[in-house]
Amino acid sequence: QEPLTASMLAAAPPQEQKQILGERLYPLIHAMHPFLAGKITGMLLEIDNSELLLMLESPESLHSKIEEAVAVLQVHQM
């Protein structure tokens, strides 16, 4: 799969941009948290597209965001 670029994303309508980002993020998140992947992806899609693009290129920052999201989700579900 070719890397997602800002110009590829900008060519799509806003709602579709989140869809595209979600399709890229979901498998990465699913590998770490199979049961929470849908919810975590939903949370991360609230982040700016430009930041999501950077996260897709940087596994470390993606992982730390995922852990942050899991912590928020666990508190939220209590």
Binding site: Q15, L25, L45
Partner: peptide, 22 residues
């Protein structure tokens, strides 16, 4: 509470029902 359904769940292959970037 309206927050019960937060966050919206992403399902691969289905149209995203959440909010677009503002």
């Amino acid at each position: 509470s309206s927050s019960v359904n937060w966050p919206p769940e992403f399902r691969p292959g289905e149209p995203w029902k959440g909010y677009p970037n503002i």
